[in-house]
């Protein structure tokens, strides 16, 4: 039970953080509000908006009008982009988990000094510009790149494999870029994991797989949830990586939004798409966290 003093302290805390809250409101809520308002306006002829209320943008997310017959039909191209974004983001999350979990486990079980070094190595790419890292990946996987040259030289393949400008390229790039975001929370969770529990479970007739499924995974779950969110959310809005590695064809939501504000000259559609992206992320997060909590079960 919070005592009156506690409550007073909480109240004072609010007052003290008022400047920060104002800043937050201007920096976060303000722009969001602008975007929301823009999504209900008419598109200007050369970009920008006309100050007239319209739901065309929201309508335009799912439907498009045939220019000749004026017929309304489902915009499958848009749906394909949405679907690809969600699919690639989910796959990125899975891949980073599959790679990141053993990595985090490895690091967490090293001696303290070695551990610091591994963590440092994992975070190094973070200190390099995203664009440069993405171009580095490009350099590796493009047709005349390092990977293909090596394979050709070794005689494994006779013609370059087309990786660049495919979904696979985007996946490789995103998995690489977001891996540290998965490894770090997993490491934090595994680091707190009491290794004695492994022996306890093994002693109590659990097989190695059961130790993993019944003891390790449930206990480090907060780390898994945090890592998945940290990877999935930016993946869904990724812009640079699909642009550089996916080329023009393999667009994700982020590129599609950018298109509306650029060549597409449809700011309201771009704004509506942005809002939709936000909603998708929120709903996905809520569903995920709720499912994760239910899995933990039996808690008070």
């Amino acid at each position: 039970m919070p005592s009156p003093q506690d409550r007073a302290r909480v109240r004072n805390g609010w007052l003290l953080s008022a400047p920060a809250l104002v800043l937050l409101a201007m920096a976060a809520a303000g722009p969001l509000l602008v975007v929301l308002v823009y999504s209900f306006l008419e598109a200007g002829q050369y970009g920008g908006v006309e100050w007239a209320f319209s739901t065309d943008a929201w309508f335009g997310i799912l439907f498009s009008k045939d220019i000749f017959t004026d017929e309304t039909m489902l915009a499958d191209a848009h749906l394909a982009i949405f679907w690809r974004s969600v699919k690639l983001s989910l796959l990125t999350t899975l891949i980073t988990f599959a790679v990141g979990f053993p990595t985090a486990w490895f690091i967490a079980t090293r001696a303290p000094r070695a551990r610091a070094m591994w963590l440092f190595l994992i975070t190094i790419p973070f200190w390099t510009n995203l664009l440069i890292r993405t171009f580095a990946i490009n350099e590796v996987i493009r047709n005349e790149g390092i990977l293909n040259s090596l394979l050709l030289w070794a005689g494994v393949i006779s013609a370059p494999i087309q990786i660049i400008y495919t979904d696979t390229a985007v996946l490789i790039g995103m998995a690489y870029v977001y891996l540290p975001l998965m490894v770090l929370p997993l490491f934090a969770a595994i680091d707190r994991f009491d290794m004695k529990l492994l022996e306890a479970a093994y002693d109590l007739y659990a097989s190695r797989l059961q130790v993993l499924r019944r003891v390790i995974l449930p206990i480090v779950k907060p780390g898994i949830v945090a890592g998945s969110i940290l990877v999935f959310v930016p993946s869904l809005g990724a812009y640079v990586t699909p642009r550089v590695l996916g080329g023009g064809k393999n667009m994700m939501i982020g590129n599609f939004i950018e298109l509306q504000f650029g060549q597409g000259r449809n700011w309201p559609l771009g704004a509506a798409l942005s809002m939709l992206l936000l909603v998708i992320v929120m709903v996905a997060l809520l569903a995920y966290v709720r499912a994760a909590n239910k899995g933990a079960g039996h808690g008070h």
């Binding site: 022996e199 306890a200 109590l204 206990i219």
Partner: peptide, 21 residues
Amino acid sequence: PPNRRPVNTVFQSYALFPHLT
């Protein structure tokens, strides 16, 4: 291996599973 031995251990630190009742 330990999971094939009908022998159980009481650990000094107890090593109870924190996620279970």
